[in-house]
Design a binder for these strands. Structure first.
Lengths: 159, 159
DNA sequence: CTTGAAAAGGTCTAAGT
DNA sequence: ACTTAGACCTTTTCAAG
């Protein structure tokens, strides 16, 4: 993949109306099209066309309910830093593909720096969290080292 | 706040139907109620009652569009670890309240361990990211030290 | 608590301005 | 891009099982 690749090109046509739609739907993903149109200041039909285009060009990747982890029996959260043994593309990509499928994994960040990955995970208990690290990461020959930081509290920003 | 506090109590009544609804809406937050009802195996009216109860008891905290950061002119992401100078509750809480309002902040994690906070931030460019750290964190007297790790790639897990 | 059916409201398409 | 109109679908309520 050449360094000159410019993925922003796809979004070049976005104007203020589009950005407002994105902000409103990021805040409330279930807002009816009528209400959205009024907030944005365009006709409902225009709003619908814009919203659909935003989904098709990839600016909107999907809609998701924000579920309280405690409600599904996973009250604990942690950030697990992972350093790999090898750093070729194949090993790195393979670890990412594997880690996103592990139970309790919310997000996988491939980062620059001393660590290679940071996993945001949820667990039912401290024991379950320990088991997650030991059973899925520590035994992985691709994993050289892990460090687990329990999350006391998470707050959402506003973009 | 006593250690014995048990916030799980609020969700004690959740059954299989509720958990299926949560899973479906987490995967597709815009699924129509009658499609959801069919997948879950109850009548649409029942499904609506359940879904509303899940929102009111806090199991569903909201619905959000998943917006591609690149679409809104913020193609860069980073994890910024923050160590505070003081660790009394007042200082810690104040920093959290401040940091969630900073521009580009996606999530704020209060973590156990050597660092106090990890900020997930978005930025328009490397310069903008540097400015964010210097202008908002480095100048903050409550902040002792920061470490910024650029995010090469983020992948979502499945809960 | 769940249900089916009726009423109310939103979505979507296609026309013309 | 906006408006209108109408078909279609979804949500919501409510009386009853």
């Amino acid at each position: 993949m050449p360094l000159a690749t410019n993925p922003v090109r796809r979004f070049a046509a976005l104007d203020d109306t589009d950005r407002t739609i994105l902000a409103e739907l990021a805040a409330d993903g279930r807002m009816p099209n009528n209400a959205l149109a009024e907030r944005v200041g365009v006709a409902p039909s225009t709003c619908l066309t814009r919203t659909r285009a935003l989904r098709e060009c990839g600016a909107i990747r999907g809609f998701h309910a924000d579920v309280d982890p405690a409600a599904v029996g996973l009250p604990l959260q942690a950030l697990v830093s992972v350093r790999l043994t090898a750093h070729e593309r194949a090993a790195v990509d393979a670890f990412r593909a594997r880690s996103v499928r592990l139970p309790g994994v919310v997000s996988v960040f491939h980062v620059a720096g001393a660590e290679d990955y940071v996993l945001h995970v949820r667990a039912a208990s401290a024991d379950a969290l320990r088991d997650f690290v030991l059973d899925y990461l520590a035994v992985d020959p691709a994993v050289q080292h892990t460090q687990t930081s329990l999350i006391f509290e998470q707050a959402r920003g506003r973009g």
